[in-house]
Nucleic acid binder design. Structure first.
Lengths: 106, 106
DNA sequence: TTGACATGATACCTTTTGGTATTATATTTA
DNA sequence: TAAATATAATACCAAAAGGTATCATGTCAA
């Protein structure tokens, strides 16, 4: 599972891919829909999606001739697990994040 | 500050650099000490440290002819901020992390 | 001061990465 | 069925990344 962690971190290293993740957080999208949002070819976007898929961050569902790209809810797991390793350093940060979330959920 | 986020994510994309971060979490180390832990030259380790520094994840303190590399406590800030954007998706994950931390602090 | 030590800087090489262009395949739809 | 649509796959290219070797610089110690 070490490989999965590496692939996930690698997937997040590119700004375009992080943007794709944010877009897919609001709704599932086809390659064509995603490509509209960027200044690059569909082939380039497809490559990014492959990297995101390798990282376990998205899944693809075939719907007729379309393919719906969907964020994988558990995809960030390995990444967040890695961060949780630094309790003594990041506890404060994580607590801030926690509090922000709690504030919103009220 | 968009640049800082990118540099931090980029810094974390390499497994050697993540290992360096983990090593520095336990104690500050010189390049020579870090190099002992890896199968590569000092120059290569130095490059990784430069990337980590660019990402704001470490700072360097000159001590005589040595340079002590130290983890920057707030360095992960931009990265964790980015993750906090996905409340609706990652809340559960973050809550699990939060609970694990709370359990430990008891 | 001279030599050893710790690091910095640079040139160079190979592989990976991010992108395009092009061609192929599968699915609708007129 | 034929044309249009949505995507996949491949070859190719320039730039960035990760590494080594080598040389330069600054500091400590005899």
């Amino acid at each position: 599972m070490r490989e999965q962690t590496q692939n996930a971190f690698r997937a997040l290293a590119d700004p375009t891919r992080r943007d794709i993740v944010q877009l897919l957080a609001s709704q599932d999208m086809t390659i064509a829909q995603l490509t509209e949002q960027f200044d690059m070819t569909r082939a380039a976007v497809k490559k990014h999606l492959t990297v995101l898929s390798d990282g376990g961050l998205i899944t693809v569902e075939a719907r007729g001739r379309e393919r719906l790209n969907r964020l994988e809810p558990n995809g960030m797991g390995p990444v967040l697990d890695w961060f949780s390793y630094f309790d003594q350093f990041w506890d404060d940060r994580l607590n801030n994040l926690k509090e922000a979330i709690e504030r919103k959920s009220k």
